[in-house]
Simulated assay, not measured.
Amino acid sequence: MRHYMHIDENKLEEVFFLKPSFFNSKTEKNSLRFALGATLYMPGTKYIAPYLLEKRYSHLTSYTMCFEDSIREKDLEIAERTVLNTLRTLKMAEDENRIDLDELPLFFIRVRNPEQFENFFNKLKNEHYLLNYISGFVFPKFSTLNAHKYISILEEVNTYNNSIYGMPILESSEIILIEKRNEELLNLKALLSEKKDLILNIRVGGTDLSSIFGLRRSVAMSIYDLGVVASGLYNIINVFSDLAINDVAISGVVWEYFNSKFKNSFEDDYSKRNLNFNEEKILARTPLTNNPALDGLIREVILDKSNGFVGKTVIHPAQTSIVNAMYCVTLEEYVDAKFILDNFNNGGVYKSTSNNKMNEISPHYNWAKKIMDLASIYGVLNSNYSYLDLF
């Protein structure tokens, strides 16, 4: 699997200064944690196997089949059977040499709660070879009340396959309400730090956190405009900063908006090439396209990146290419980051090669490390190209 599989090799050579690297579920964790990009959530009742075998979603690099909020409780048994049948179909296709496992997107399963996780895993035990097609499990409403149970089941899963990760979702009231927040986050940090080898990504449930206050952002706003929710997001980044730098990624919240024109916001490559991707104008809410849902997503991803999030939950296939493109590294970022790392032993402050900023070696070191990690996974754009060329 590689980001931008929809772009042919000749075009990749043209667009990229440094091409994105390949990855799969066995990729070293420090790289894999950043590789998820846009993670598409789908209801567990959807039989996804034909889409995967036909490579219908060429932009897709990670997806989650959901047993929780996206389905009705009475449909849980149907969802479990459907996901198991998807996994069986993938195995059969691999056995018949119709697919290459390394070319499949990363497959995650969002369980309903610890009890359902345990019950579903007991079903998987009977066909434990199906775990080869799963990259991890997503834990909703993750809190100190259920964290130990989730983790203990995950540890048992790894006795059958030792490369299955957990992705907790921080979305419960204990995470956001001010009287409980700090104690809850610090306790979760202690637990996740101890089990960090099992945790690939920390996800944040922006919709659930907003609902606690009866809030919902409009298409003209970002999650960071909802101050009471944004304050919780900032606390999460603050508390988990050590883990985020060295061990896990923290992904951005879902963007809820799309419309019938979302898939065809650009008429062709020419129309994209004639747009000027100007970050300052986008942040100032100057329209980039004639599609407010698309402009809003682009603006929120810029803010996600600025605040330390990597990747994003998405609920529409057309959103995947946009989010993944936005995590590609610009040539200016790459040159600055490489210079900082190359001169780490020297220290000091230097004018950037682009002659528009200072590069202070020690304070910018963690930023530079992250940029180089992202450059390996998402590639580095040539100077005369922009994110728009990857949509």
Results as ranks from 00 to 15, higher is better:
Glu184Ser: 09
Ile202Ala: 09
Asn187Phe: 02
Leu185Pro: 04
Gly166Arg: 02
Ile223Trp: 10
Tyr224Ala: 03
Asp197Asn: 15
Arg217Ser: 04
Ile169Trp: 02
Ala220Ser: 15
Ser210Pro: 01
Val219Tyr: 05
Leu209Asp: 05
Leu209Gly: 04
Arg217Pro: 03
Met167Asp: 01
Ser210Glu: 11
Arg203Gln: 14
Ile223Val: 15
Leu191Phe: 11
Ile176Trp: 04
Lys196His: 13
Ile202Lys: 14
Arg216Pro: 11
Tyr165Met: 07
Gly205Val: 08
Glu183Cys: 06
Ala220Arg: 10
Ser211Pro: 04
Asp197Tyr: 12
Ile169Val: 14
Lys180His: 11
Ile202Asn: 07
Ala220Trp: 06
Leu192Val: 11
Asn201Pro: 08
Ile176Cys: 03
Ile176Ser: 01
Asp197Pro: 04
Ile164Cys: 04
Ile199Lys: 14
Asn161Ala: 07
Leu191Tyr: 10
Glu171Tyr: 03
Tyr165Lys: 06
Ile175Ser: 00
Leu186Thr: 12
Asp197Glu: 14
Gly206Trp: 00
Asp197Ala: 12
Lys195Tyr: 15
Tyr224Cys: 00
Gly205Phe: 01
Ile199Leu: 07
Asn187Ser: 14
Leu186Pro: 06
Thr207Val: 13
Val219Met: 05
Asn182Gln: 12
Glu174Asp: 13
Ile202Phe: 09
Gly206Val: 06
Leu188Phe: 10
Gly166Val: 09
Gly205Met: 00
Ser193Thr: 15
Asn201Gly: 04
Ser222Asn: 08
Ile199His: 07
Ser163Val: 10
Ile176Pro: 00
Val219Gln: 10
Lys196Gly: 00
Ser172Val: 02
Leu170Pro: 02
Ser193Gln: 14
Gly166Leu: 07
Ser193Pro: 04
Ser211Met: 09
Leu200Met: 15
Ala190Val: 12
Met167Trp: 10
Leu192Cys: 13
Arg216Trp: 09
Gly206Tyr: 05
Ile212Asp: 02
Ser173Ile: 00
Asp208Lys: 09
Leu177Lys: 03
Glu179Gly: 00
Ile199Thr: 12
Ser222Cys: 12
Leu186Ser: 10
Glu174Lys: 11
Ile223Cys: 04
Glu184Asn: 12
Asn201Glu: 15
Gly206Phe: 01
Ala190Thr: 15
Leu198Ala: 10
Glu174Ala: 00
Phe213Trp: 09
Lys196Thr: 12
Ile178Glu: 00
Ser173Leu: 02
Ser173Tyr: 05
Leu185Cys: 05
Leu192Gln: 08
Thr207Gly: 07
Gly166Ala: 06
Val204Leu: 07
Arg203Trp: 06
Glu194Trp: 05
Leu192Ala: 11
Leu186Asp: 10
Ser173Lys: 02
Arg217Ile: 03
Asp208Tyr: 03
Lys196Asn: 13
Glu179Pro: 00
Ile223Lys: 05
Ile212Lys: 13
Asn162His: 13
